[in-house]
Amino acid sequence: MMFDVTMAAILVTMALALSRALLGPSLYDRILAVNMFGTKTVLAIAVLGFLMGRPEFLDLSLVYGVINYIGVIAILKFFESGDLAHPGHFGE
């Protein structure tokens, strides 16, 4: 029962993040919406594991968190310098 309620709450939050990604209006709204959606994906996978009685998939959600983090860093880095291979401030 508890996991059902949690899953429903996550789905509602997913819908809200999705509407922000669809409506925009600014670029950073959309980036934040994707980041938010990635976080909800991590939570959804964690809860789904318990909901379906296979909690060993919990490790997977950790790796999703890492992928999500790296993805957003890459996108933001791209907007800062326009170039993924840019060394950033450490190279100067």
Partner: peptide
């Protein structure tokens, strides 16, 4: 807006 489309493809 193609940027929004790229973000949506991530979702």
């Amino acid at each position: 807006n193609l940027f929004a489309v790229a973000m949506l493809s991530g979702i």
